[in-house]
């Protein structure tokens, strides 16, 4: 864990402010994890009431987002952080933005559940999307763990996991197309599930982003548009 640099400021206040925004981001992460979990459960169990509560609770996530942004602005303005402190504040700002978007995607999935109550839950397609959702949930959890521990190796693993998510998404798409070709009347319903799958796949991408901010904070290197191979060569070789 690379938090030693959080401890040697002369100003105790500054230390605790940096610690505080870090904890707040992770608290927001917990909220978003819960939202995603409930969205996936509501998808699996066809629970409209649950889905509606997810849609409603998104405002809590948004409130967190604004609160953390405000605090980061204050730190930037009052403390003018440099080096790793600056990287931490930047990583926090970006992670918050990504978490807020993940919250929005979870809301989108929940909205789909609340709207399309006549969805055929027995279909194979449905089980696949729920499975995709569980995988994404796991990935978000690991990305946030990597952020808490500032663990570069774990972050690289999360980036690697995105490949599985992408292939799972592709297979959902292929299957959806099959359904639509066989039975054109199912197109509206299948389109909804495709949008849900798309949202989940986007959450996977945002988890990658969060992991990349971890690498940025610890190593001071921006790896956002590098390939997985490049990242591995750089930090593991």
């Amino acid at each position: 864990m690379d938090t030693s640099n959080l401890k040697h400021h002369y100003s105790q206040q500054f230390n605790s402010e940096l610690e505080d925004i870090r904890s707040r981001v992770l608290g927001m992460g917990g909220l978003v994890e819960r939202q995603l979990e409930l969205a996936v459960v509501s998808l699996g169990d066809r629970e409209n009431a649950l889905a509606e509560s997810v849609v409603y609770n998104d405002r809590d996530v948004n409130a967190c987002d604004m609160d953390i942004d405000e605090r980061c602005t204050m730190i930037l303005a009052l403390r003018q952080p440099t080096a790793s402190d600056l990287r931490l504040v930047l990583a926090v700002i970006k992670t918050t933005a990504d978490l807020e978007r993940i919250g929005d995607e979870a809301k989108r999935v929940a909205k789909m559940v609340a709207r399309a109550s006549d969805l055929d839950r027995e279909s194979n397609l449905f089980g696949k999307i729920v499975h995709l959702g569980e995988q994404v949930q796991h990935m978000l959890h690991r990305a946030l763990d990597a952020f808490a521990r500032m663990d570069v190796e774990a972050a690289i693993e999360v980036v690697g996991e995105d490949l599985n998510i992408d292939s799972e998404y592709e297979s959902v798409l292929r299957q959806s197309m099959d359904y639509m070709m066989q039975d054109p009347s199912s197109i509206p319903v299948v389109m909804d599930t495709v949008w849900a799958a798309r949202s989940l796949e986007r959450i996977g991408d945002r988890c990658c982003n969060i992991s990349e901010y971890v690498i940025y904070f610890v190593k001071g290197k921006d790896v956002r548009h590098a390939s997985l191979e490049q990242i591995r060569n750089e930090f593991e070789g």
Binding site: M1, S23, L26, G30, R149
Partner: peptide, 21 residues
């Protein structure tokens, strides 16, 4: 929790359930 890494870490950073906080 990871034995070597997590001592000294705020517990809620790793156990992020809102009800736990």
């Amino acid at each position: 929790l990871q034995p070597a890494k997590d001592v000294g870490q705020p517990f809620l950073n790793l156990f992020r359930n809102p009800e736990m906080a």
